[in-house]
């Protein structure tokens, strides 16, 4: 097919195109082409270039000169024959739209921008886009930044991180389940390093003890055995819990979130899980202890949530069931909530 498409091109132009495609370099300057093709003068080059341009096998780029950054330089880039044929088969409008979508690369282009750039009527743009999409030349992607915009890019391209939002987004939706499960895994890893055997025996402290801790020097300062960011990263990579590749900064942002949640703390570059987070997760229980026993010499702590009476938050969710109970009798911290 390609042969028939390029049949009517003179041999010299064909040779030039072949050379440009075969060396694999993306673009050439005028001098480079003259030198490598051993052409006699610029006019000869221009003649060939014009033929290729007409056929859509070549495009002209503009770039800053290597010698003088203020000066512009003309570059030639080849286009494969299939590509050229594809464009050649399109209508003129389609070709224009296609060229803009192509230029946008992995970032994609908004339909409104296409309309503005091409100066075509909206209907025409939409028709072109539709036809290109059915031919699988372009695809529409959802942008995380602008969820309402319709953005197009070439079919074979993967959208850039700016568009997809990085590993935390699936189909441009923040994948909270994924994040939460990763958070739990990381927290558990750190907690295991901070408190010995804290997840053994259904959350009971081992050996019937009331506390089981590492000595202070392990938790802090020199010779600390707590995991650092790279340890956490290594753990995630080695455990294979996710197929999505996470960079160190992604892991760091997960750790930051855990810090904001007060589940872990950063101690001089290493991470330490808080005991409270272990308690909240149902760990750190004492064997044989009656958690509902009266607190004689202790003060009520809001973190003993099993001790918390009916809060008015709970009240709200159970509203349907507790209609018969006057709302007054459920009050607890409510003047703050209803502020």
């Amino acid at each position: 097919m390609s042969d028939t498409f390029a049949d009517d091109i003179p041999a010299s132009a064909k040779k030039m195109h072949h050379f440009m495609v075969s060396t694999g370099k993306s673009s050439y300057t005028q001098n480079e082409l003259i030198e490598s093709l051993k052409l006699s003068n610029v006019a000869e080059l221009m003649e060939n270039a014009q033929i290729l341009l007409n056929k859509g096998l070549l495009k002209i780029l503009e770039a800053a000169s290597t010698t003088d950054p203020n000066e512009k330089q003309i570059l030639f880039a080849s286009i494969s024959e299939q590509e050229a044929k594809k464009v050649n088969d399109m209508t003129a409008d389609e070709a224009i739209v296609y060229s803009h979508v192509e230029a946008a690369g992995r970032e994609g282009i908004w339909t409104k921008t296409i309309k503005a750039k091409t100066n075509l009527h909206q209907h025409i743009v939409l028709r072109c886009l539709k036809s290109l999409e059915t031919q699988s030349y372009i695809k529409s992607v959802k942008s995380v930044k602008h969820p309402t915009r319709k953005i197009y890019m070439l079919y074979h391209l993967t959208p850039s991180i700016d568009v997809t939002g990085g590993p935390w987004f699936t189909d441009s939706e923040l994948d909270t389940d994924f994040i939460d499960s990763l958070l739990v895994v990381i927290w558990k890893f750190i907690a295991q390093k901070t408190y010995p055997k804290c997840f053994k025996k259904k959350g009971f402290i081992p050996n019937g003890l009331k506390q089981y801790s590492y000595p202070a020097q392990i938790i802090t300062g020199m010779g600390s055995l707590l995991p650092s960011l790279s340890d956490v990263n290594d753990f995630i990579v080695s455990s294979g819990i996710t197929t999505i590749e996470l960079t160190l900064s992604d892991v760091k942002s997960l750790c930051d979130v855990l810090e904001f949640d007060e589940k872990i703390e950063n101690v001089g570059g290493t991470y330490k899980a808080t005991w409270q987070s272990v308690l909240e997760a149902g760990g750190g229980k004492i064997e044989g202890e009656d958690v509902y026993a009266p607190l004689d010499n202790q003060i009520f702590n809001i973190n003993d949530n099993y001790r918390v009476l009916d809060t008015s938050l709970k009240d709200e969710t159970d509203e349907n069931n507790t209609n018969n109970v006057s709302s007054n009798s459920m009050l607890y911290l409510d003047s703050w909530i209803n502020l």
């Binding site: 009331k210 506390q211 808080t274 005991w275 308690l279 750190g284 202790q298 003060i299 702590n301």
Partner: peptide, 14 residues
Amino acid sequence: TQLISICKHRIGNI
């Protein structure tokens, strides 16, 4: 008592 309660939740019972 407040401090002890916090300590119990942040460090441990003993």
